[in-house]
């Protein structure tokens, strides 16, 4: 029963992936509204990262459907999914260490994406302004010429978020964006996420419950590839099943 066109940014239906018989994601149904900041939590091995892998095309699903703005993603290749408007941040900061902050953002700028386009790509005022704008947003505008390898762990995380923002995706997926950050950096990141969730949907995987409480509009708890509970933070925290498998520890 595949749904017809909907208003959801993302509609995941009956999604299953099995690795040698082990169902990492099992018949998952999941919807994401426009402008919603949704956090997925769950114990290790619950299938959180796998869900992101499936949406962005890194892993191919065994069955089911993933519709992004009514466009089926399961048949598309990775770069086509990105071009459709889905951005994904990896768990460990995934940036180009040999390039400067400016160049990292420039390489991510969504123009000149073909071979010849990239050869003829010109760094014009429009590109420079956009890079500066994003750099300000991710608090790295004073470090544009710094080699990315020299950034702190937190700054690397922000840079990767910036690299996604510059593509202006309609759906932004972040895998543990505050892992390894200091308390202050966490607060700044929470502020950043609240700001960028205006005008787009954001899907976040996170462990840090305090951080989740700061940002989440809606929370889904995943356990053994299935949804255990879903709703606002308070409802989920009071759910006895959730307390048993996850929060109780």
């Amino acid at each position: 029963m595949m749904s017809a066109n909907t208003d959801f940014t993302l509609a995941v239906e009956e999604l299953t992936v099995s690795f040698d018989g082990f169902k990492a994601v099992d018949n998952l149904n999941f919807y994401l509204d426009k402008n919603e900041l949704h956090v997925v939590i769950g114990p290790n091995g619950a299938g959180k990262t796998t869900v992101l892998d499936l949406i962005c095309g890194k892993t191919k699903s065994t069955s089911g459907s993933i519709k992004f703005m009514n466009k089926e993603l399961t048949k598309l290749s990775e770069h086509e999914i990105v071009r459709a408007g889905v951005g994904r941040k990896f768990q460990t900061p995934s940036i180009y260490e040999n390039l400067t902050v400016f160049e990292n953002l420039e390489v991510s700028y969504p123009r000149g994406r073909g071979v010849f386009g990239s050869l003829m790509f010109k760094r014009d005022a429009e590109v420079e302004n956009k890079i500066l704008e994003i750099a300000k947003e991710i608090m790295l505008d004073h470090m544009l010429e710094t080699e990315a390898a020299l950034l702190s762990h937190g700054q690397k995380q922000w840079l990767e978020i910036g690299m996604l923002l510059i593509q202006d995706p309609q759906l932004l997926m972040l895998d543990e964006p505050v892992a390894g950050m200091s308390v202050k950096e966490r607060e700044q990141t929470a502020e950043l996420l609240n700001k960028i969730s205006a005008g787009r949907s954001v899907l976040v995987i996170e462990h840090d419950m305090e951080f989740v409480a700061q940002i989440a509009h809606k929370v889904t708890v995943l356990h053994q590839g299935k949804i255990l509970a879903s709703g606002d933070m308070d409802t989920v925290q009071k759910d006895p099943k959730v307390i048993e498998v996850y929060l109780g520890h």
Binding site: Y96, V107, S108, G114
Partner: peptide
């Protein structure tokens, strides 16, 4: 050119380039 920076980027983090909307193989 941007192509040159993409080469360096691919050498470093191929997946990041792919998930930035590039068809790395090309």
């Amino acid at each position: 050119s941007k192509f040159g920076r993409l080469l360096l980027a691919m050498r470093d983090k191929e997946d990041r380039v792919r998930f930035s909307g590039y068809d790395v193989a090309n």
